[in-house]
């Protein structure tokens, strides 16, 4: 290998600074959430304790955070499943030429770039004018889909751009029906990318704020609850909650990455050994 150029060391330092910039603040509130009972929102630490985490489990101290966590979790799962199914179907649809596909494509882009508050406002207006009560599982659910679906579809476009169609042709030549081609050839090949779509679906929903703001109704999701707390809670309990939900997000990401990794390994083991030689 060639020796590293000087720019490598400079850029490495830049990259490390970037990572500190990305993670530093979050680590700071992670540390501060272990403040002693007399501690405030900034350093210095006044003792080390689990006081503020204990506070989270006492209902009266912080409002309905566990209820909102449950709602966010269920909503995240609903959005995740819908995003995966609709994105896969949409991705398959865009491989065929159908009338209106260009319009639909630009709608997807619009859904991505539209200011989130417009979705909140528009969906809220439709619901209130037609006399329906806004609820996180109906209007909130749909509003979040306008945010997760574009990401799911962009991933599917990327996947199908790299998809080798000769596998499908081979299956068809062997007499597979269109459904069998999808079920036994296409879906297994794109499965690891679906893990990615699912991860985006869940985490984007779990952390969504702006599009849920006017569409969740009186039962808040967790990000709305946290934002409410920023205006009236001035103790490190806020940091404790932030730390806990970030750790939860990291766990979810970890589980998804692990599943993707295991899937890839299984596939490598069960795959063909063609071209690997006899020994």
């Amino acid at each position: 290998m060639e020796p590293r150029p000087k720019s490598f060391y400079f850029l490495s330092a830049f990259f490390v600074l970037f990572l500190i910039f990305l993670y530093g603040p979050t680590l700071t509130i992670g540390i501060l959430s272990f403040q002693g009972p007399g501690g405030g929102l900034t350093f210095p630490m006044r003792g080390v304790s689990l006081h503020w985490f204990r506070d989270l489990f006492e209902q009266q101290a912080v409002g309905d955070i566990w209820g909102s966590f449950r709602r966010s979790f269920v909503l995240g799962l609903m959005v995740m499943v819908t995003t995966v199914v609709v994105s896969v179907m949409g991705g398959l649809a865009f491989r065929k030429r159908f009338a209106g596909s260009t319009v639909l494509f630009y709608l997807i882009i619009t859904s991505l770039v539209i200011p989130s508050i417009l979705i909140s406002l528009g969906v809220g207006l439709i619901w209130s004018q037609s006399g329906l009560p806004v609820h996180w599982s109906s209007s909130g659910f749909g509003a979040q889909l306008t945010w997760t679906l574009p990401f799911g579809l962009l991933i599917m476009f990327a996947v199908f751009n790299r998809f080798d169609r000769s596998y499908e042709e081979a299956a068809r030549d062997l007499g597979a029906s269109p459904w069998q081609v999808i079920r036994h050839v296409v879906l297994p090949i794109i499965a690891p990318s679906l893990i990615g779509v699912a991860l985006f679906g869940f985490t984007l929903s779990y952390d969504e704020f702006a599009r849920t703001l006017l569409t969740a109704g009186s039962h808040n999701t967790l990000p709305l609850e946290i934002f409410g707390m920023t205006t009236n809670v001035t103790t490190p309990v806020l940091f404790a909650l932030g730390t806990l939900t970030t750790v939860f997000s990291l766990l979810v990401i970890g589980v998804f990455l692990l599943v993707a990794w295991v899937m890839n390994r299984r596939r490598a083991r069960h795959g063909s050994d063609a071209g690997r030689g006899m020994v």
Binding site: A93, L104, I108, G122
Partner: peptide
């Protein structure tokens, strides 16, 4: 082909119609 394409795109079209196009028109 076009019919299958339409069927596959139907759920996406439905979601975007109700939660993207309709809200924009409403606004």
């Amino acid at each position: 082909n076009s019919v299958i394409g339409w069927l596959l795109a139907a759920p996406l079209t439905l979601v975007l119609s109700i939660f993207l196009v309709a809200p924009i028109i409403m606004i």
